[in-house]
Design a protein around this nucleic acid. Sequence first.
DNA 1: ACCACCATGGCAACCGATTGACAAATTCGC
DNA 2: GCGAATTTGTCAATCGGTTGCCATGGTGGT
Lengths: 348, 348
Amino acid sequence: MDEQTASTERGNGNRKPPATIYDIARLTGVSASTVSRALNKPGRINVRTERRIRDAAESLGYRINPMARALPTGRTGTLALLVSDITNPVYFDLVRGAERVASATDHTLVFAESQESAEIELSTAERLQPAVDGVLLVASRLSDEQIFELSATKPLVLANRRVGEIPAVVPDVTPGIIEALDHLKQLGHRSIGYLAGPEASWMNRARWDALFENAVGRGLSIVEITAAAPTVDGGASALRRVVASGVTAVITYNDLMGLGLMRACRAEGIGVPERLSIIGFDDIFGSDLTTPALTTIRSPLAAIGEAAMRRLLAEVRDDLDADAEPPLPTEFVLRESTGAPTAGSPEA
Amino acid sequence: MDEQTASTERGNGNRKPPATIYDIARLTGVSASTVSRALNKPGRINVRTERRIRDAAESLGYRINPMARALPTGRTGTLALLVSDITNPVYFDLVRGAERVASATDHTLVFAESQESAEIELSTAERLQPAVDGVLLVASRLSDEQIFELSATKPLVLANRRVGEIPAVVPDVTPGIIEALDHLKQLGHRSIGYLAGPEASWMNRARWDALFENAVGRGLSIVEITAAAPTVDGGASALRRVVASGVTAVITYNDLMGLGLMRACRAEGIGVPERLSIIGFDDIFGSDLTTPALTTIRSPLAAIGEAAMRRLLAEVRDDLDADAEPPLPTEFVLRESTGAPTAGSPEA
DNA sequence: ACCACCATGGCAACCGATTGACAAATTCGC
DNA sequence: GCGAATTTGTCAATCGGTTGCCATGGTGGT
């Protein structure tokens, strides 16, 4: 006794089934294959016939069924973008740049987050892979092996991480860091702290390494300070350790932590930049809205998103050129959260 | 004779074609249809056979091909989410809530932005529709007719907008607004401004209407002030008009504009909240990081995203219940950008 | 006139999975 | 022990497009 029969009677209502190439074929009196060619292989079919077919398609409101097309061709026309945390403003511009390139090339972007969990990241990537032509992993937390395996199945590109020979797009952190260090040195700072990001983050390593290298070269002392999480709260709760370390300036793994640190300073009555100079990383939305506005090292996020997506498209198309990647330098953005240390000359 | 070891010869290299149910069938000595049933219809197949098949699938690293499945069934297992602007932090939590529900039900979320253009929104929606089971339109800028048409093709749900009988999830703006107005009245404000959002925004209308209704009922005077854009810059550039209007407090269409207004005040030396009280809308990321921190009317964005996605899933499944939607009240969040007007009692 | 050649359109075999109909094998009732 | 009921698994059609190959007819060169 199943009432299943009257499926579309009530409720959701009456949706007209979408038109197919067979409908167009019937309407114009040609075969389906002719319709298919008229629509995709310009020139292959007589212009007048093609016109008729296009008109018929138009009048029927025809939209190609991407699934049906994907089956024989193997191309889905969609690309996946995986980030660790959507609510992290760092990815805004990156996502946006990627989206721009994707839609400019008539690709659909599927987007997912891994909630900072390597496990979720892996299962999500695996779930997505069969449905897309390629995957863009942003700041992946996976192990090198896992990434290699994923990359063996479908085209894969990394952003803000490097693994073996797998195509990757990463900014050059050095320029911004050099500027920042020079700036701090010139202000009179001698001892600098780095409020570190997640262990598993490749970018965290890259930043620390560049920082270390260049600080030492300039005769500045530098210490790594650990934090609970690369978030506002993580930055805030690290203040005690920062103070205890005795540094006069801190560079944080990202702006979120810088902002958190600043907030904690305010709560504790520690003047920024009088008693502590703070420099963030990334230049996310909002870092120029605080008081004082956050000095930071900007990553060219939109450009990274675009470049990574272009690289992925090349990979999908199996283009063998794609070498002319322009460099993506970071840039020091001077705002208000840095100043001379208290031991130096007093404010004018 | 397994030369498989040489995984990455050159270039993109040699990707092994993914396993199909036919591979499993061959390996286990049954037919493809048996494999299909073993994997999807628990109980339909002998348990021992099913076991063998599942093991074989596992060992081959089998992943179902969503395209191939979608063809006969008509179900793609993916849902589309369309927002006007990804870089608008307002959508963060909403997107996240939606994503959570989608992945909890094993659905893939496709995500796109319309860059505040109705035209792009329409074409994107049309492009996405054939590839998904349903569409979630957030704060759509389309006309009612266009939305009706889209909704005639596939299941569609609206968030932050209402059109006819189309399923929609919108917060109840009134509670937060009442609290905000009471708060301002109590501080001594008599004349309030509303810095308006986009003409085409349904939510802008809804907020203004509720504001107007309740302000009048409280004996407060209220004026609508237009702004160029619902952004930080739009808010900043509206400061002159705000000042000219003579109001002592402003409620802005969203936090972005509130933040912009605050920034402009700072640049002009206008004290907040001493000379102007500012209340935003939404409680986006960053609104508690400024100085002063922005008082705002919070929308339950994550809950909206979740509810909307649940509604969409019900729609897709053709569930006929789905009436028990809990209300989604806004909430007043008191921070530091509001205070007594200068004409009132001086600060203690 | 003869033939090569090109433009045009149709036929049919896929792509990978689903599912109704049915055959073979097994179990059960009496 | 015989037919009936129930499992268990196979066949073949189908979803909507794509594409290699072939058939047809017209054109032009010599």
